[in-house]
């Protein structure tokens, strides 16, 4: 499913309305974390064949950041949530 995305706020919308950032990496390290934690967060990716969580931005719609659970082989989307509800970005 990468032609249409069901935005939790706007409903089923075409892919053209979204901007994609990439994989939901490890959480943003807390203040004081060492460089290796930051390196991991900023640069390293699981990049799996299969289920993948990633940031999509509904740029042409509600302008909310979403987290999609999407299969990288079939492109099927199993879940879409507003990113703020997951607190995946870290809590620094």
């Amino acid at each position: 499913m990468s032609s249409l995305v069901k935005c939790p706020h706007c409903g089923l919308r075409p892919r053209e309305e979204f901007a994609i950032r990439g994989e939901v990496a490890t959480p943003r390290p807390k203040a004081g974390a060492d460089e290796s934690a930051w390196f991991d967060h900023v640069y390293l990716r699981d990049n799996p064949r299969g289920e993948h969580r990633e940031y999509w931005h509904h740029a042409g719609g509600c302008r909310r950041w979403l987290v999609l659970s999407r299969n990288t082989v079939t492109h099927d989307i199993s879940d879409v949530v507003d990113a703020s509800t997951l607190k995946v970005g870290g809590d620094a």
């Binding site: 064949r49 993948h52 990633e54 990288t72 082989v73 492109h75």
Partner: peptide, 14 residues
């Protein structure tokens, strides 16, 4: 590129 992670060797109409 399509913009999303993919291992499927195909793209989309957009």
């Amino acid at each position: 590129i399509e913009g999303y992670n993919s291992y499927a060797q195909r793209g989309n109409l957009a």
